[in-house]
Write a protein that binds this DNA or RNA. Structure first.
Lengths: 113, 113
DNA sequence: TGACATATATAGATGTCCGATATACCTCCT
DNA sequence: AGGAGGTATATCGGACATCTATATATGTCA
């Protein structure tokens, strides 16, 4: 997978994961890989700075939790502001991917997905 | 349109345009905008370096031509090597966009991950 | 005790794209 | 003739996203 294609959509995917449930960083990396059939292999060096940025901008809030004797994990929770950002990013993605589809299929008509 | 989303796919779109016919840079900018319903507004400062890079790597070849009294334009032609690159990039794009679709719609359509 | 997976964090390097700027030609209008 | 505006190519500097590499520390299993 060309890493360039990932650009710009990583934040959206992270927000989408948190829409379902609160998660911690390491877990997001694994679930993203799993849910995408190993297409996305997000690196820790990419994810953590993104999470910190989202927290600073109040898109997510974090809290520590240690599940049954396990080590402390930092969970992230999507805020209302974060949900709005996710909705915006999804709209952008739809417009973008649809435009790419038009170019690749020569403006031919296609059935809506 | 968030510029971040464009990342990585610009080269593919340029190659796709050249698959249909030989074109010159300025023309590509306008056709890309037109074919995408103004979603893509490729800048000259982005396109020309890409074209030069593609030519160095023998994905395209260029030739000058002046159409009926008009000024000289630099046309680009897709090579066999370039067609193979385009095919690769399209396969990558398909895998990538399908994976994003799974993340965005996965929770609703299929269970048991 | 050592190896390995888990878990978070940051600095440095790389690549992509855009804004700004430069040059020059062509056409239209006055 | 002169100026404005669209056409056409080109390059540099900066902004931004991502990866690699590295660091640290804990939990589990052999």
């Amino acid at each position: 997978m060309d890493k360039g294609l990932i650009a710009g959509s990583t934040t959206m995917l992270v927000l989408k994961l948190l829409e379902g449930k609160d998660m911690y960083g390491y877990q997001m990396i694994n679930e993203l890989s799993k849910k995408s059939d190993r297409t996305f292999n997000l690196k820790a060096g990419t994810l953590y700075p993104i999470l910190h940025g989202l927290e600073i901008n109040e898109m997510v809030i974090s809290y520590d939790e240690n599940a049954d004797g396990a080590r402390v994990r930092k969970y992230y929770h999507l805020t209302h502001k974060g949900k709005k950002l996710l909705a915006d990013k999804q709209r952008e993605w739809d417009a973008y991917s649809q435009a790419v589809h038009k170019i690749l299929n020569g403006g031919a008509s296609y059935a809506a997905i």
